[in-house]
Design a protein around this nucleic acid. Structure first.
Ligand SMILES: [Mn+2]
Ligand SMILES: [Mn+2]
Ligand SMILES: [Mn+2]
Ligand SMILES: [Mn+2]
Lengths: 220, 220
DNA sequence: ATATATTTTTAGACTAGTCTAAATTTTTTA
DNA sequence: TAAAAAATTTAGACTAGTCTAAAAATATAT
C-alpha cells in the first residue's frame, strides 16, 4: 500500500518533533506543525496506527514504528536531495527551496531518487547543512554546537541552521554568514546576550541572541 | 484559485483528445483516458465548467476555454521539460520517463519551470519528439508525416512517435530506430502493408503496419 | 418513424482529509 | 485531593473525487 502526501508529511513531522531520542509527540504539537486542528490530527493518528506506521495510545502521544521511521527517512532523503538540486543545479537561493522541495519529496520512484543522488555526486549535506540519509536509510546527525555555547575568543565553523525560515536565511545572507564561514566570538554582552563576532577574519558584526540560538557551529 | 492534480490531468487529456482543430471531446473518451467511469467524468466536467476552464453543454461534449487551454499548455510544458531532464541529465531511457513526468508536471512554481528550462538549454522538443511550449504558452505542432504515407524509395528522418507506450519505445530501441534516424523505405508488402526499411544506410529490417502507423517522419 | 442500442447524466453512496462543537481524560493548581 | 485548566478524543458534518445502478437523452437500424 502506498502512503499519501498527507501521511508522508505527518511521518516526517513526527520524526522531526520526536528528536533523536525518539520522544513522544503530542497531538497539539502535530496540529501546530501541520496547520490543522487537533481533531484532524487524532483522525490521522488512528489511520497511521492502523497502518503500523506509529505507536499510538489514546492521550499518550505518538512515536514512529520502525516502518514509520523508514518511510520518514526516505521522505527526508528526497527532500534534501531535491534541495541540493534546486540550489546547485538550478541556482535557487537557500531561502527559496523549502516549499518546492516540500512537494518534490512526495514524488515516488526509488530509481529517480538514486539517479538524482548520483547526478548530484552523492552529497552528504543539504543547502542548510542538514545531513542527507543514505540509500539504506542511515541518518547520522552530526552533533554540532549552538553558537550561544561558544566561548569568547573561540573560532568556529558555521555548519547549519536550526531555523529554516526564508526571513532568517535572508538575514544571514545580508550579514555575510554562510555555511563554512569562520565565526570568531569577540564579545558577549551581559545584558541581552547579543554577540560581537568576526566573520572569516574580516568584518565584525553584532548578532542578537535570537540569531545565535539558530546557528549550528563546529570546532575548526 | 489553484487547480488540483486531477483537474490538471483532465485539462491535459481534453487538450490532447481535442486535437489541433479543437474538436469536441466526449464523456466516454475522457472516461477511457482517465481510467474512471463516465459518471465521474460528468461530475468533473461540471466542476471544470464552473471554474471557466471548459465549454460544456450537457450531452454535447466539451472543449477547452482560452483559460483552460493556457492551463493545459503549462502542464504540457512542465511534463515535457521534466522528461528532457530525466533523459538528458539523469540518464533514464525514453521508455521510462512518462509516469514520473506525469507526477512532476503538477509541481507548482513558475520560477521552477523557467529555471529548469534554462538549465536544460531551452530545449524545443522532448525525448519523444514532441514540441515543448514556450514560456508564453505558444505551442506549435510541426506537421510531420506518418511513415505509412511515405513512398517506396523515399528517405525520411524519424522525428517522433504517436504511441508513447514503453513497449513500443523498447521495440524501437531493439530495432535501432531513434529520433534522427534516416529511414529509407525499400519495399511495401501489398498483403499486410508491412515495410522493408533501411536504417541510417545500414541494416535493413521489416516493420509492421502497426509500427509504421506510429512513426512520425519528415523529408530530409 | 419507431424500436433498439448507445451515450450521458442523475441519484445515492463511499473514502480521505478536514472542520466545529461537545465530551472525556489528563494535568495543574490551590 | 478536589476543582479548574489544558489537552485530547468523539460526534457529526463538509468537500473532492470516485463508484454503481437507474433514468434520460441521443444516435442507429430496421
Ligand atoms: Mn511535503
Ligand atoms: Mn533543508
Ligand atoms: Mn499528471
Ligand atoms: Mn513525451
Amino acid at each position: 500500500m502506498q502512503n499519501s502526501f498527507t501521511e508522508e508529511n505527518y511521518l516526517k513531522i513526527i520524526h522531526s518533533l520526536s528528536g533523536r531520542d525518539g520522544a513522544e509527540v503530542s497531538t497539539n504539537a502535530l496540529a501546530e506543525s501541520t496547520s490543522t486542528r487537533a481533531a484532524s490530527v487524532t483522525d490521522m493518528l488512528r489511520k497511521l496506527a492502523d497502518k503500523g506506521l506509529i505507536h499510538y495510545k489514546k492521550y499518550q502521544g505518538v512515536t514512529l514504528t520502525e516502518t514509520g521511521e523508514k518511510v520518514a527517512i526516505k521522505v527526508i532523503r528526497k527532500h534534501r536531495l531535491w534541495e541540493v538540486f534546486l540550489v546547485e543545479k538550478l541556482g535557487f537561493g537557500w531561502d527559496e527551496v523549502h516549499d518546492i522541495a516540500e512537494e518534490l519529496e512526495h514524488i515516488p520512484s526509488e530509481v529517480l531518487v538514486e539517479k538524482l543522488d548520483a547526478f548530484l555526486g552523492h552529497p552528504r549535506f543539504d543547502p542548510h547543512g542538514d545531513p542527507i540519509p543514505d540509500a539504506k536509510g542511515n541518518l547520522t546527525e552530526p552533533d554540532y554546537r549552538i553558537l550561544t555555547d561558544v566561548q569568547v575568543g573561540e573560532k568556529v565553523l558555521m555548519m547549519g541552521v536550526l531555523d529554516h525560515a526564508p526571513s532568517f536565511l535572508q538575514h544571514l545572507d545580508r550579514s555575510g554568514i554562510t555555511l563554512g564561514s569562520v565565526i570568531e566570538v569577540r564579545e558577549i554582552n551581559e545584558y541581552d546576550k547579543s554577540a560581537s563576532v568576526q566573520i572569516n577574519g574580516g568584518q565584525t558584526l553584532f548578532i542578537s541572541l535570537e540569531v545565535s540560538k539558530n546557528l549550528l557551529v563546529q570546532r575548526r
